[in-house]
Simulated assay, not measured.
Amino acid sequence: MATRRPVIKDVAALAGVSWKTVSNVMNDRPVVKPETRQRVLDAVATLGYTPNHAGRDLREGRSRSVALVLPELENPYFARLAEYAERALADRGRTLSIELTGGDADREAAYLQGATAREFSAVLLSATRVSEQSVVNRPDWTPLVLLGERVSNVAVPHIAIDNAGATVDLVRHLVAGGRRHIGFIGAPESALPSTGSVRLAGFQAAMRFADLPVANIQRCIDWNREDGYRLMQQMLAVGDPLDAVVCANDLMAIGAVRALVESGRRVPDDVALVGFDDIAEAAWCSPPLTTIRPDLELLVRHALDAALTPDGVRERGSEIVVPHELVVRASSAPKG
């Protein structure tokens, strides 16, 4: 496994040419003989070299920018995460580069492999499509921290809340309020380890512990208001008894509220609702939403500590779980 990202001089040495020749090949200039060009391209492939187009912006041979790789910014959770990261990095004399993948597996893999046009001093990756093998096979060039659930046993730091434990807290709260027929919205469609799969596992474990049936589970890919609305309609159409719903995030819970109101159900009198993330809308929707509040400031601080501490000190396989808080609001008031 490589210990650093290969540079243009490494390619030149392997190909037996000057670094200027490598530059000519990489910029597709027609001044290099075909056989020489092929030697350079073979060396590029062997080393896994990616041109660094931001070299002129590097200081002391290293980028001062940290990449925060997110699936999107439409979700207020990710936007708030980016705000905390920008503030924390400014305090450390560094800059933040927000990189969006749209949840695309190939784009996420590019940041894992260091196959990006710009070089970063570290990468904080909130991934949705990362497999264990893609983490195992990554070159060890740029410090990487995974935000969310562990996807493999490789020595990559990852920071998360206790998603299973937090979901158990939500179910216990609902059961204590007299709810017995509890559904779940936001189960993953993919078999890959994910935040959704861990939250679902926590839900199932808590329901079994309470000796309650695990019946009405709705799956989706995108955790947005539209999915919450659509899946709540599907849940109601099943016709099973229902007096509470755990939503895997607040956006889906807000969409679910609308579907319930349109169907003539009252929240929380008929159906209680709870969510995750404590986005700003959670306190302002009607009724205000019970949710899980993660300590995002602490999460960002731990992630930057893991990413920016020199390799000789950093615990490469460290796993840090940050605290969460159950925020109880009117949407889950006890059953009358």
Rank of each mutant, 00 (worst) to 15 (best):
A248H: 11
F203H: 10
D211I: 00
L200G: 12
R230W: 09
F209G: 05
R179W: 09
D243L: 09
V246W: 05
L212G: 03
V175Y: 07
D240V: 01
P241G: 12
Y229V: 05
A206S: 04
V238E: 14
A244V: 11
P213F: 05
A176L: 08
G228F: 12
E226T: 14
E226Q: 14
G202F: 04
A237R: 08
A205S: 15
R230N: 13
N249M: 09
R219Y: 07
A191G: 08
E189F: 02
A191C: 00
S190K: 08
A248P: 04
V246G: 02
F203Y: 15
G178Y: 10
A210E: 13
R208M: 07
Q204V: 13
V246H: 11
R179L: 13
G178E: 04
G178V: 12
R180L: 08
L236V: 08
A244S: 13
F203G: 08
A206V: 10
I185L: 15
M232G: 04
V175C: 12
V198C: 11
R179E: 14
M232S: 06
F184Q: 09
N216R: 00
P213K: 01
A176N: 03
R230L: 14
D211T: 11
D222Q: 13
T195I: 13
I221S: 09
N216H: 02
A248R: 08
A244H: 12
A205M: 10
Q218N: 02
L212Y: 05
E189S: 03
G177E: 08
C220Q: 06
V214D: 02
L200A: 12
M232H: 05
L231I: 14
L231D: 10
A187K: 05
P193R: 04
P188M: 00
A191D: 14
H181E: 13
A210V: 01
I217H: 01
N224K: 06
I217P: 00
R230M: 13
A237C: 04
V238A: 15
V245M: 09
M232V: 10
R208D: 14
A237M: 05
A210N: 05
